[in-house]
Amino acid sequence: MPTTKAELLQGTLDLLILTTLQADPLHGYGIAQKLQQRSDDVLVVEEGSLYPALYRMEEKGWIDAEWGKSENNRRAKFYSLTRSGRKQLKEETAIWERVCRAITLVLQTA
């Protein structure tokens, strides 16, 4: 597998973001919050690094962005999954699960 460390990390971040967007459109801060809650505060990324990832994914057409009003009535940009984003999420999840199974297997046999 030619995946480098950086790509792996980046890919994982993308996967996490896509997962959080599965249900409803969220703004960037919302995504960060959800990530933190979901992972029981274990996964803490530098929150800034979310944004370049979001822009990159928007560029790739996986997510769509729209300006709207936040819960406290401020102008905020909301991201939502596109069709190709859902497909990507499915693929990435499958890969991820395979990798996890493999790792678990290795750990168990060790």
Partner: peptide, 14 residues
């Protein structure tokens, strides 16, 4: 400005 807006929004919320 949109980018700045978005990032500042995040900071303020946090």
């Amino acid at each position: 400005d949109d980018i700045d807006d978005e990032l500042h929004f995040h900071m303020e919320m946090r």
